[in-house]
């Protein structure tokens, strides 16, 4: 197994912007709303090609989300594009009340998510968005791993009947998938060959999937059977996939570019515990800490979210699991 086409793709952000251009060509009801964020969202070409399909709100994220909900209520297919940090903190109440609670299917697009903004610091990081939105009813939560997932999910989002939050970063991502694959919102994708049993399962989301996948390949070379799941959708949560693979694994590691509190890891743990699936488990993400300063790669390494650390953590966890069995 190797990364398909073993190629480095574009940034998910670029793929998002291009996909939206293609879609808008056929659907004049598609609107983009921005908060002085078209440059960061790579939406400038869109704005030039479809000047009638973009609404600029200025640096006013609360207003941005409120207006987007109103536009959606009138039948517009609104993609609200702004940095994930501001959208899901500053405008959280608008997301909760005007979008989710009132059930207007706005597509809330959080760009430069997680720690993509690196050394711009905590104001610009979104390590709380999964937690905040998971505690709010009626908004789906998606973080595509690579260009393929991004393209497909944006295509599916256009006519998605519910509010949806999609977040991604701005780093070029390796291609992880065979482009002929099917993808559904709410269905995890297994990146590694299927087996009956696994030594270890990685459940990862967003840009950490590539790191988990590379760690899986390394472990595979050492004869360790690994299942690597790209759980691009946190809600609806794919219970069936998690149940199936974790039940057949000795241990599980979750990986996310998010706080270890309230994100993917705690969601998986809560599901497993309540369904009597008890396995040695590690939740990898950003700990409850003043996030270290650095670029995204440095922050990943600092907190063990990079492939090498994941590889080592896997060995350690398996060793611990074995000892417990003795």
């Amino acid at each position: 197994m190797s990364i398909k086409n073993s190629s480095l793709g574009e940034t998910n952000l670029d793929v998002f912007a291009k996909t939206l251009m293609d879609l808008a060509d056929h659907d004049r009801n598609i609107l983009v709303t921005t908060s002085d964020s078209r440059g960061s969202g790579k939406i400038t070409p869109f704005a030039e090609k479809f000047p009638e399909q973009i609404v600029e709100i200025g640096i006013a994220e609360q207003n941005l989300v409120g207006i987007s909900a109103g536009l959606a209520a009138m039948g517009k297919k609104v993609f609200t594009v702004s940095p994930a940090c501001f959208l899901t903190a500053r405008a959280l109440e608008q997301i909760k009340n005007d979008v989710a609670y009132s059930d207007h299917p706005v597509k809330v697009i959080g760009i430069s998510a997680g720690v993509s903004y690196g050394a711009l610091g905590t104001t610009h990081h979104s390590l709380h968005d999964f937690a905040a939105l998971q505690a709010i009813n009626n908004i789906d939560i998606v973080a595509p791993a690579d260009n393929f997932e991004t393209r497909k999910i944006i295509q599916l989002a256009v006519n998605h009947p519910r509010p949806i939050y999609i977040r991604f970063g701005k780093k070029a991502m390796p291609n992880l998938h065979d482009p002929s694959k099917k993808i559904e919102i709410g269905k995890a994708i297994q990146l590694t060959p299927k087996h009956k049993n696994y030594d270890l399962t990685f459940v990862a989301i967003g840009e950490t999937v590539a790191e988990a996948f590379l760690a899986s390949q390394k472990l595979d070379k050492e004869g360790i059977k690994v299942c690597c799941l790209s759980l691009h959708t946190l809600r609806p949560f794919d219970e069936a996939a998690i149940q199936e693979v974790v039940s057949n694994s000795l241990a599980v590691i979750t990986v996310e570019e998010h706080s270890v509190n309230g994100g993917l890891g705690s969601r998986v743990a809560s599901f497993l515990m309540q369904n009597d699936i008890f396995r040695p488990m590690l939740i990898v993400g950003i700990p409850d800490d003043h996030t270290v300063n650095g670029n995204q790669g440095e922050i990943f390494r600092h907190y063990g979210i990079d492939q090498q650390s994941l590889y080592l953590s896997a060995l350690k966890l398996l060793h611990k699991g074995k000892r417990n069995d003795d």
């Binding site: 690196g118 050394a119 610091g121 610009h124 270290v292 650095g294 670029n295 600092h302």
Partner: peptide, 10 residues
């Protein structure tokens, strides 16, 4: 803006 520096971009 370097790793672990207090001098960040804000």
């Amino acid at each position: 803006e370097k790793y672990n520096s207090p001098f960040i971009g804000h």
